[in-house]
Design a protein around this nucleic acid. Structure first.
Lengths: 336, 336
DNA sequence: TTGAAAGCGCTAACAG
DNA sequence: CTGTTAGCGCTTTCAA
């Protein structure tokens, strides 16, 4: 059966479509008598306002696009939850794109901003380059970033203090007596990688230790990469006593390598990761890790972006730099 | 800067909006000369067709709604990926609702079908009752179900053969010599629970063993529930030698309980779960588990639903019952 | 092959 | 307080 429209309700209630619209939108200037007539007609016709008509007229879709590299990763899922809860509370819906790290797919999704399918877009640790993102921000498109930072007055960002994460982990390991600390990094060009490495360096320097490039390797943020990086580092006989991996996935790779090489954790080597994913608590020993306020990062950003979209004047965007928490567990329990 | 519209392009190219629309939609009846003029104007104005106008006119949003109970659970994430990949391939977008198992939120999301925000809706292991779902299916709304089955000509469903899962696990454990097999179920009224229990019973019967209700308990599909259920079962001194948990989360709870009670797996007791989640491979011993074709469940259902939505005649929906695979690992390696 | 015009369903001026 | 009317941006008859 064809949906009934506002005009049908108007006819049935003997009023104009405008009046029906007023009732629908809770306008205060309708008699309670008229209102009742209209509501009755709505009930009888089982009428529901059509979203497309409304959206076209109001030039708003009340929808936020969210681009993540992989929806299956707990890191992203938690951020999405933060975004979704805030968005829903403010009557927004979210359209998700699992880009599988393909730039092309992210770019394609950005077109939904141009064609006004979404009112705003949130990129979660996107692999797009700054210029690519900025080319959109120059238009009157609302874009927000999570887990990444771009200096731009209209692009809100929420991210963690990665330098501090690097410093904190190194400090913790030094307190446990470690002096030669290896660092397994993620993608070389990811801000997370660069900043955590920087924090690592800064803390070493602060302690009067010299930075040794031969203790650094990269593992692309995944388990296999961590496994391979550790294997390489170990084979060089650098005699480090601790490893700091830029995320937990790579720490799992280190565990695998250690199991094969007969290295025991934490007796022979201490391990600290980042993200504090669930698995870190199920392996033996549990992996010390830095926990990030992911939910908050999503929620704060969504709130800021929506506020900004609805502001009459375009206000300067806020940048949220959130602190993380080191959770010490078995993998770094003993001294080096 | 205000977006340019089709009329602007028309003016610049000295044609009518209808012609621009034809070019946009690849109509064959435009001269290549006119086409070039129009394309040129589009480029110059950096024009992008407005999605709302198009949608209102065509009465389609090219959007699929997806309701999951929790986006953070790997089970759901994998299904979403299957849906999304197929949907994107067919030019559809997906709008996600993480209902957190709140019925009210699911119901609210269903209204997006009524107001035509989405063209179709997929419920993943929804907690809504059959009548609630059917009340929507009676209208001309496209609804599909995953991980659940409703007999209705227009509701496509994809789900696993849960009875077979129950039978297979029991058979496997019996082959390992187990005769008294405890079963920790999920929510008592979930189809997954009921059917897996039924399979468990059938296989016992087939082997000439009697069903013992005192070996059954429930753990609500979560780790804590599994922990508590096992603790209860164990304290009854029933002397079972194996536990079949209706999902892996509860198996993890069993591991925790066994660690506390000093029971060693698999020597004292064998454990088999369902879902084959990642963590099952990181605990010691690895947990035997039944792997479900989640991605395929999502993909097949999305394909069927979209096909159905676009069919001129409303065809009967298909039901997809997919087979699962038991992955035997350390937790059920030894005999009982 | 192209254009004129109607209308998808809704809201918001403006008038009464 | 309510109705009339003009679009939001697009597609699609129908006519030329």
């Amino acid at each position: 059966m064809r949906d009934s429209k506002i005009i049908d309700v108007a006819h049935k209630a003997n009023v104009s479509p405008a009046t029906v619209s007023r009732v629908l939108n809770g306008s205060p200037l309708v008699t309670s008598k008229t209102q009742e007539k209209v509501l009755q007609a709505i009930r009888e016709l089982n009428y529901t306002p059509n979203a497309m008509g409304k959206q076209l007229r109001s030039r708003k879709t009340m929808t936020l696009g969210v681009v993540v590299t992989d929806i299956g990763v707990a890191y992203n899922a938690e951020i999405i939850k933060g975004i979704e809860n805030i968005a829903n509370g403010l009557k927004y819906k979210i359209l998700i794109c699992d880009s599988q790290n393909e730039k092309e797919k992210e770019l394609e999704f950005l077109s939904l901003l141009q064609n006004r399918t979404v009112d705003g877009l949130i990129l979660v640790t996107s692999q797009l380059s700054d210029p690519e993102i900025l080319s959109f921000a120059d238009e009157d498109y609302a874009i927000g970033l999570i887990g990444r930072r771009i200096e731009h007055p209209f692009i809100p960002c929420s991210f963690t203090d990665n330098i501090r994460i690097g410093k904190e982990v190194v400090q913790h390991l030094m307190e446990r007596g470690h002096r030669r600390i290896a660092f397994i990094n993620g993608y070389a060009d990811a801000p997370d990688s660069i900043e955590r490495l920087q924090g690592y360096k800064e803390q070493l320097e602060q302690a009067g230790l010299s930075f040794e490039p031969e203790l650094i390797d990269g593992g692309d943020f995944n388990e296999q990469g961590g496994y391979e990086a550790f294997t390489r580092l170990w084979s060089n006989n650098e005699e480090f006593t601790a490893v700091f991996t830029a995320n937990d996935e790579m720490a799992l790779g280190v565990y695998k390598a250690c199991a094969e090489l007969g290295i025991s954790i934490p007796e022979n080597i201490a391990v600290v990761g980042v993200d504090n994913i669930r698995i870190t608590n199920y392996v033996e020993p549990k992996i010390s890790s830095v926990e990030q306020p992911l939910y908050a990062m999503g929620a704060l950003l969504a709130e800021q972006l929506i506020e900004q979209m609805n502001g009459s004047v375009r206000a300067e965007s806020q940048q949220f730099m959130l602190a993380s928490t080191l959770v010490v567990k078995g993998s770094s329990a003993k001294g080096g």
